[in-house]
Design a protein around this nucleic acid. Sequence first.
DNA 1: AAAGATTTTAAATGTTTGTTTAAAATTAAA
DNA 2: TTTAATTTTAAACAAACATTTAAAATCTTT
Lengths: 226, 226
Amino acid sequence: MIAESEKVHDICFVQTGIIVKCINLSSEEKLKEAAKTVFLKKGFAGTTARDIADAAGMNIALTNYYFRSKEKLFVEIFRDLFELYCTNTIKILDRPVELKEKIIAIIEEDYRMMKEEPSLVLFIMTEIHRDCENLLPELSKYKELLKGKLVGHIQEAVQKGIIRNIEVEHLMPIIIGSLQFIFVGKNMHMKMHSMSEAQFDKYTETHKNHVIGMVTNYLFTDLNLN
Amino acid sequence: MIAESEKVHDICFVQTGIIVKCINLSSEEKLKEAAKTVFLKKGFAGTTARDIADAAGMNIALTNYYFRSKEKLFVEIFRDLFELYCTNTIKILDRPVELKEKIIAIIEEDYRMMKEEPSLVLFIMTEIHRDCENLLPELSKYKELLKGKLVGHIQEAVQKGIIRNIEVEHLMPIIIGSLQFIFVGKNMHMKMHSMSEAQFDKYTETHKNHVIGMVTNYLFTDLNLN
DNA sequence: AAAGATTTTAAATGTTTGTTTAAAATTAAA
DNA sequence: TTTAATTTTAAACAAACATTTAAAATCTTT
């Protein structure tokens, strides 16, 4: 028997050598973390209950004991990840800075998120493609949040003539699409140009800078030319 | 019974007016077409042998009779679809027109292809993510073709000062990324903005025009500003 | 029309799937 | 320390899975 204090998967907050707080990840949490990793890698259809149990180092029955079914566990994880995908952008819109600065910050933050979880976007798109209705019942929440925080700002900027007149539905894809595409096709691009992980990191950073230039150039300059 | 001469999907080898050999490909082709549809919709892991047989209206054993296994059939279909994905772009590069015109033509052609097969890009990215090594053993073929046809043209244009100095590895994603992203996230965007299929068509066309403006603007104008 | 080759079928194969069960092990409460 | 509640386990479950088989049906050749 392993003593409680020796169990792995604890998170300890240490300040100047002293353990301030020590949280023992419960079996339920360990299972969910392991499942998240596997689902992100293999998707819902490609993941078996045994994959999850193996990744967590736990018994095959525990998924159903804690989450009742593979699908219920998946939906829980998907909701978390979709919120991560959406709220990153939304919280930036609250910053009290200029629109151009905001848009650059969105791209930078999006880049940071994808660098941390490169398969997140492909995962979300794949699973929505598979089962849109069940996975996005509350999409309108994010939709309203995003629109509410953008529309006013955009209209004001359009009237002032500092930004191109663009529908809000097109603005976000214009801003984030090109960079997210690179991560969606990560494996293809890596194989295509024979890149290592480190080289891919450099590649995406360069690409991010191209995107910042391209997007701001299009939205904020030469409005009379097109 | 339908007479042999009236059957569709026959391929006949004729030499000096005489039928030397006549192969009826109907069942094999029907099966492959049905499998292509199902794989595009559900992916490899989400598709069962029964899904394919049902879609083709044929017996469950025929996949193995004609293609030996579900995976061999899948690989065959994936190769076809990946070629479709790549060669569309490559053949445009042969046109004897200016670089700017070529890039616009690539976007237009890409748009046409995705309108015809909206789930193609997501399918390719998902499957490469799942099994890159097995699915892309001959990727270098397309890589060389693409680079060979672009590099010279780009370098020349850069020297003439008519295009921004950009690495060829970044050029294609800059051109096609933003628009392909819209189709990768088709279901999400449709649900997000409560669009019908017809409305999505209009949406993508508008987006395509934004992309053309944005890309050409970035690549061909104001080179001194950034 | 008969013989031979090919295609299609229904049934069965063994494996893997998600899930359940009931007992064992562990933890918490008395 | 004993009892009760909870967690973990190994085993079993039916259903679904890809694939195979051998017979039936169809087509081609003679």
